[in-house]
Amino acid sequence: MRFALDESHEDFASSIDALLTKSDMPQVIRAWNSGDTAPGLQVWERLAETGVNGLLVAEEHDGLGADAVDLVVAVEQLGRHAVPGPVVETVAVAPVLLAAVAPERLGPLAAGSLATVAMLPHTPYAVDAHVADLALHVAGGTVSVGTAGETRESVDRSRTLASLTPGESLGSADTAAAFDIGVLASAAQLQGLGRTLLDTTVEYAQQRKQFGRAIGSFQAVKHHLAEVAVALEMARPLLHGAAIAVRDGLPTASRDVSAAKVACGDAAYLAARTALQVHGAIGYTQEYDLSLWITKVRALVTAWGTPDEHRARVVAALESEAS
């Protein structure tokens, strides 16, 4: 099995990276946190123009008809830049659900509308239902249009969590496949967040001086950063392998996406902890950009299934294969 990305994937990632680099994402995120979602929605409009929203939407519904590998490439970049909004739900989960129950709703999604999803029992709250054009409530295989109710705060101030009340039923769908694609996209988002945290911390360590020397020259700091780099690099093949398993419909897909989620989540969390250790307390203050990435990692580690749930899925799959 070949895990390396080809040139078209690299070019696609570079185009998304360039778009988001020009968008001053820290200011966009802070505006979103304060309730001003207009700059963030403008970013989403530009992403839709590149085809990100319609990656998993069939060409007959004005999408790109891409696959899970393309999805991972795109969402990792969205993670690198900590794009606010229902990323996993809009780009990954909603297209899979709507293709099964309401394909006529896919056109607006590909054109740039946002969608959010509450999928019981693993994901009981919908992200950013207040800005989503469509909210989907999924329970027992039934997909319904949801209405946002009680809201909860997240450790990540750019995420507003809301319970959904099911309304119009759209039909039944293979929610297991939708859940797996959500897990995969969440893993990719964490991988991107971890990469930015590592890059930012390395840059800081090269500039910050103590005792007349850059702290990055201290052996202890080097070891911490090296551990993060190794964790992220070891998670990447699991992420790409899971994307291939989903793309090809392999029987190990559920196991593989869970393994990727655990590995990417652990690596991103290690990156967040190390970034905070190297930067010191300033790294967690709201005024410092790093905090926007750290808090998003904290929130996404348990999104679309907790680490314990995914470890249990991996163990159960391995035991079933061995019997």
Score class of each variant (00 low, 15 high):
Ile282Gly: 05
Leu290Cys: 09
Leu98Met: 03
His81Thr: 04
Gly280Tyr: 02
Glu59Gly: 01
Glu309Trp: 02
Ala66Arg: 07
Val315Tyr: 07
Ser8Asn: 12
Ser291Thr: 05
Thr90Met: 11
Val246Met: 13
Thr201Ser: 12
Val127Arg: 09
Glu59Tyr: 00
Gly63Ala: 03
Ala99Pro: 03
Ala178Asp: 08
Val75Asp: 07
Pro84Glu: 03
Arg313Trp: 02
Gln207Asp: 13
Arg152Ala: 14
Asp36Cys: 03
Val145Lys: 06
Ala272Leu: 00
Lys22Glu: 15
Leu238His: 09
Gly167Leu: 09
Thr147Cys: 05
Gly149Pro: 00
Pro251Tyr: 05
Ser15Cys: 01
Leu292Pro: 09
Tyr284Lys: 11
Arg236Lys: 11
Ser23Tyr: 08
Val143Tyr: 01
Thr285Trp: 10
Phe211Cys: 02
Leu238Gly: 02
Ala4Arg: 12
Gln277Lys: 12
Ala18Asn: 12
Ala259Asp: 07
Tyr288Ile: 11
His224Thr: 10
Leu136Tyr: 04
Ile282Thr: 09
His279Leu: 13
Asp180Ile: 07
Asp266Lys: 05
Leu164Gln: 05
Thr201Leu: 04
Gln286His: 12
Glu89Val: 10
Glu309Ile: 05
Arg80Leu: 08
Thr306Val: 08
Ser154Phe: 00
Glu153Leu: 12
Asp256Met: 10
Gln210Pro: 02
Tyr269Ser: 15
Val202Glu: 13
Val278Cys: 04
Leu161Cys: 12
Gly283Pro: 03
Pro251Gln: 08
Gly51Pro: 08
Ala135Lys: 08
